[in-house]
């Protein structure tokens, strides 16, 4: 029975080492809680609330910051997006339906392939298809209010005037 005890102890020791390393040595990172559904429960009443919601969605539920990092790389950086939107509309490669910066951003969110920034297309499609999902699709599932809030947030970080109307005023 000596060899059984020896090999069992050896195996337990190995398992113990792996466990110790995973539990105590690597930094403890706790994945975030699943995004709550109630993000847009109360309609934002002021621009400040709209911006706060936009920032929250941008970094949280919308998962925008996952790809749109400051360095670019996977997806275009968005810090100046509302600034470049105007120039985009008149560029020869543009074939979407947007008429102003706000509608351009809206289109980019719900129909990302309408215009793909050169170099960011899915490989093999010659820049014709964007890897970004429709933000209304259920893997992200933003509501209309949340999309508006994100656009307002993008305009805010770009430093341009916020043209997004608050939900009440849009309904009138």
């Amino acid at each position: 029975m000596g060899r059984f005890v020896k090999t069992a102890a050896f195996s337990l020791f190995i398992i113990g080492l792996y466990t110790f390393y995973s539990v105590f040595v690597i930094p403890p990172i706790n994945p975030g809680e699943p995004p709550s559904e109630s993000a847009a429960s109360g309609e934002p009443a002021t621009i400040v609330e709209l911006l706060a919601l936009g920032e929250e969605v941008y970094n949280g539920k919308g998962a925008c910051a996952l790809c749109h990092t400051r360095e670019g790389g996977r997806a275009p950086a968005l810090e100046g997006s509302a600034l470049v939107a105007k120039a985009r509309l008149s560029s020869p490669g543009y074939s979407g339906k947007a008429v102003d910066a706000e509608s351009y951003l809206y289109e980019s969110l719900v129909d990302p392939s309408a215009y793909v920034v050169p170099g960011y297309g899915v490989s093999g499609t010659d820049g014709g298809v964007s890897p970004m999902p429709d933000v209304r699709a259920s893997s992200i599932g933003l509501s209309e209010t949340e999309i508006r809030a994100v656009i307002a947030y993008l305009q805010s970080v770009s430093g341009v005037e916020i043209t997004v109307a608050l939900p009440e005023r849009r309904r009138e």
């Binding site: 113990g16 466990t19 539990v23 690597i26 259920s138």
Partner: peptide, 25 residues
Amino acid sequence: VYSVMKDASAEAFTPSIAYAAKVVS
């Protein structure tokens, strides 16, 4: 089912590596 059917149970959160390591061990 990713992007189609959401887990709404109390244990929907993603566990940490440390927790997973204990379960695996």
